[in-house]
Nucleic acid binder design. Structure first.
Length: 868
RNA sequence: GGAGGUUUAGCUCAGCUGGUAGAGCAUCUGCCUUACAAGCAGAGGGUCAUAGGUUCGAGCCCUAUAACCUCCACCA
């Protein structure tokens, strides 16, 4: 027997361990059923998982379980990501707390520290994932830096090398002086900062005139190679082609003209520092100014800056500005706020530096990828995510893949120390040109997204194409947070298309953020983050999953908080109690297949409603709208099954006819079973617990509900609608007149439509409304004090003991008025000639019928008032 | 600066190919009715962001505006 109270802690862990023991999650290469494979976005092992991760792993689990119940051979490949730069930053911080600097260690020693971190955090994260209840194939667990994945990375690199897509070049790159590495554009985040805009005099050579240049970074002036003005700027036309004297350095630099310069900003004159600013870099290249680097990799000024050498950042800026003021070249400094690029990982403002880096040439690769997208080979949801991806591919720059870090995949490029040959190789090997054994490997490591980009194939052991690869590739589904669509989704697409010639997944669902109850992004600063383990501890895994998914749509962010978790638990508790009701009531009953049952009116009704919900939910699930499907399930389970069907079942369970009792028990059990199966993907534990109790088998081996065409009982549903309408009306009367629920009201019924199930109707009515139907009349309407009208019945409630006539008159008149408002609305629509001639017949018929019903109702109410 | 998203009840959100505005939560009222007080029953509450347009008919389609959010770009 089930416990009286729902307590998830009693069974969630036990059930998960059972599933693991029974290998419920493992794939089976012999399985001939259709496959459904899912790719897990590998969480970074920088720290612990937050609720955003929880949702992005719960959603695929929902589809995994849904597909499994639908008879697919599901393979969900799990793994974690080493997140090169992010994790290295964490380990550097950790060491710093112990007073150790990265440079104090050798590369090998540092690597050992990394491995310790990987192990500790990796295990924690895996336990978090398991606590979420996900059915990933743990036997196939991957890590982006394990041996198989490293092999895949090397292979991919060497292949790209052979195909001529990899080159080394000098580029202006974003450089983080703290992480001491170049970072890609998407690893730079812009933050608004307060600064000063300095106005500096540049004297025109052989003239008393000078140009005033506005800049936020006076310290870079040592690298200035020109001053640029707009060619249409009347103020400066005369100076174009002349030379000005660079302050402090006293070097002559040209004044150039370029459309790029914004006439309205600052003074309209721009100092051009090609080595330290991306726009200046472009200008410099265009005008062949050359390059002059004045900032070191640690962010300090170099020897070209004279006495300012060694100064960094704000300090350098202020000292240079002060000196300019001393020598009378600083006109003024204004307060100014602007966006400063900062390192996404360590928040330090980035420098633009020209460095030597490895790149992947993107133009051809991006073009081919776009063709696959154009062919609709991959379904990307929502649509705007697809266009975002497409735009990015259109404008994509060559991909800088080298990072000056110690942790990550070492770039498999070797330098021959004898002949200088540079070559790529899977393993260290002698120089292919001169056969020299004296060579060394490039010190840099690859951008973390390089290994993530081949994740779909590397997790299937690529480049070794085995049975598993053949069966499960491409994947059917990947679900990812939308903010990494260009970081990750795009790279998987072009890398995998490059190597395997087809898209790596057929469906790509991108989700918004999980935000707090006020719609704010969860962040450490706000302290509004929620630890999924806390929610699990207090509400259970099922409640967490339910709360994360319920009502969520792909288009917008999802709000999450403890209220949501609380509501989730209430719902699950409701299911728990409904199940207990069913369990108690099927005891000792003969449970029959439904086709052998003596189906009653309410049974036919609930089976029709079940059909409806199965249809809706299936459609939504197939469309990856799990959040909306869950709303449907909530409404059906609670409002339809619990609030009405269970109530209808009570009188039937008291029947004198044993076949009705057995039927009711059978339907109760059947419908609950179908509800559990549909809920299982969302709340796997409680559904398993209940299902095994009732059906003695694992719900994971059950079959998903299907629409049964036999159960289309339209007439019965209409009758039940009438009964529910009367029920609500009588309850309303009870509330209004403050009639105790216990008091049995007497009523007469006038049946307007001849029907077969009159006795049942009356049975349900009496039970749900606590009335005694004294008289049933099919000939004429007997008066009573209170009237309720429906298409099937007029109900006269004999309320003389509780109601005074005037109050009831007022109630009926109010009823008439409300009905009349609706009636007039419809009438005015119907009076419109345009409507009648244009609207579809079905709509006109519906309206006509409704008008008739309203008119009829008003008439009935009026005649009752007269008789009062 | 560019692109996209959102705007419907106090709150969170549904609303199908245009056809009489929906649910949950919250609020108020009454109930310990033998599955469930983590519950049951009932009620109130909306100029569908604003202004135009198309249409017999607009929450839905079109145009403009506003507010908020996200991504991209990075004006020195």
């Amino acid at each position: 027997m089930m416990d009286k109270t729902y307590n998830p802690k009693d069974f969630e862990k036990r059930i998960y361990n059972n599933w693991l023991k029974q290998k419920k999650f493992a794939c089976n290469l012999q399985d001939k059923r259709q496959k459904y494979s899912i790719l897990m976005p590998p969480p970074n092992i920088t720290g612990h998982l937050h609720v955003g991760h929880a949702m992005n792993h719960t959603l695929p689990d929902i589809y995994a379980r849904y597909k499994r119940l639908n008879g697919f051979d599901v393979e969900w490949v799990p793994g974690t990501d080493h997140a090169a730069i992010a994790t290295e930053a964490k380990v550097v911080d950790k060491l710093a707390k112990q007073g150790i600097k990265k440079d104090d260690l050798t590369r090998e020693e540092f690597e050992q520290e990394m491995q310790i971190w990987y192990k500790e955090n990796g295990e924690f994260i895996l336990n978090q994932l398991k606590a979420l209840g996900i059915m990933a194939d743990w036997d196939e667990l991957c890590f982006t830096r394990d041996e198989v994945r490293n092999n895949a990375v090397n292979y991919a690199f060497v292949e790209l090398w052979k195909r001529g897509y990899i080159y080394r070049g000098e580029r202006l790159t974003n450089w983080c002086p703290k992480c001491n590495t170049s970072i890609s554009d998407i690893e730079v985040e812009y933050k608004e900062k307060n600064a000063k805009l300095y106005y500096i005099k540049y004297q025109v050579v052989n003239s008393k005139d000078y140009l005033i240049v506005a800049t936020t970074r006076p310290e870079t002036l040592f690298g200035d190679l020109a001053v640029a003005v707009n060619p249409n700027d009347e103020r400066y036309k005369q100076f174009v082609g002349k030379k000005v004297v660079l302050p402090i350095v006293n070097k002559e630099i040209p004044v150039i003209a370029d459309e790029y310069v914004d006439v309205s900003f600052g003074t309209g004159a721009l100092k051009v520092t090609p080595s330290h600013d991306i726009n200046d870099y472009n200008l410099g290249k265009k005008h062949n100014l050359g390059f002059l680097q004045v900032i070191n990799k640690d962010g300090s000024l170099n020897e070209l800056c004279g006495k300012f050498k060694g100064l960094k950042g704000q300090d350098a800026r202020e000292k240079v500005a002060n000196y300019l003021q001393q020598i009378g070249l600083l006109i003024k400094a204004e307060d100014y706020t602007h966006n400063v690029g900062c390192c996404e990982r360590c928040k330090t403002p980035v420098e633009s530096l020209i460095t030597e880096q490895w790149f992947v040439k993107m133009d051809e690769i991006a073009k081919r990828t776009k063709q696959h997208i154009d062919n609709n080979e991959v379904n990307i949801r929502p649509d705007f995510a697809k266009s975002k991806l497409y735009t990015w591919l259109t404008d994509v720059q060559d991909w800088c893949i080298s990072r000056q870090l110690w942790s990550g995949h070492r770039i498999p490029v070797y330098y021959c120390e004898d002949c200088g040959e540079v070559y790529a190789s899977m393993q260290p090997c002698a120089c292919p040109k001169c056969k020299s054994q004296k060579y060394h490997q490039d010190p840099d490591v690859l951008d973390t997204w390089f290994s993530s980009g081949i994740w779909p194939i590397s997790t299937l052991n690529w480049p070794n194409i085995g049975e598993r690869f053949k069966k499960y590739y491409p994947f059917d589904l990947v679900i990812s947070a939308r903010d990494i669509i260009t970081h990750w989704i795009a790279r998987m697409l072009f890398m995998c298309i490059e190597f395997e010639g087809k898209v790596p997944f057929y469906n790509c669902i991108t989700t918004g953020l999980i935000v707090d109850e006020q719609g704010r992004k969860m962040s450490k600063n706000l302290g509004n983050g929620i630890d999924p383990l806390d929610v699990i501890q207090n509400y259970g895994t099922d409640a967490l999953r339910y709360a994360l998914v319920y009502g969520g749509s792909l288009d917008s962010d999802t709000r999450f908080g403890f209220t949501a978790a609380d509501n989730a638990r209430k719902f699950i508790n409701k299911i728990w109690n409904a199940s207990r009701f069913v369990e108690m009531n099927i005891l000792d009953k003969q449970i029959l297949p439904l086709e052998k049952c003596n189906l009653q009116l309410a049974d036919k009704w609930i089976l029709s409603k079940l059909n409806d919900v199965v249809k809706k939910v299936t459609k939504l699930m197939n469309n990856y709208d799990a959040g909306l499907a869950l709303i449907e399930l909530h409404d059906f389970a609670w409002l339809t099954f619990c609030d009405y069907y269970i109530e209808f079942s009570k009188p039937n369970m008291q029947s004198n006819d044993q076949s009705i009792i057995n039927t009711t028990a059978s339907v109760l059990k059947y419908v609950l079973g179908e509800i559990l199966k549909m809920l299982h993907p969302f709340i796997p534990f409680v559904t398993e617990e209940i299902y095994t109790n009732l059906f003695n088998s694992s719900i994971m081996d059950a079959q998903y509900p299907k629409v049964n065409k036999e159960w289309n009982y339209k007439e019965e549903c209409e009758q039940m609608d009438s009964i529910m309408e009367i029920t609500r009306a009588i309850r309303e009367i009870r509330t209004e007149y403050k009639v105790e629920n216990k008091k049995i009201l007497n009523a007469n019924i006038f049946v307007r439509k001849t029907k077969d199930n009159l006795a049942e109707n009356i049975l349900y009515l009496q039970t749900l409304t606590q009335t005694k139907i004294a008289e049933v009349n099919t000939q004429n309407a007997n008066a009573g004090e209170m009237l309720i009208t429906t298409p099937y019945y007029l109900v006269f409630l004999n309320g003389s003991e509780v109601v005074d006539v005037n109050a009831e008159k007022a109630r009926l008149e109010n009823e008439i008025q409300k009905t009349d408002v609706e009636l007039q609305k419809l009438k005015s629509i119907m009076a419109n000639a345009g409507f009648v001639s244009h609207a579809p017949q079905a709509v006109i018929q519906k309206y006509t019928k409704q008008i008739k019903e309203y008119e009829d109702k008003i008439q009935q109410l009026n005649s009752t008032i007269k008789q009062l």
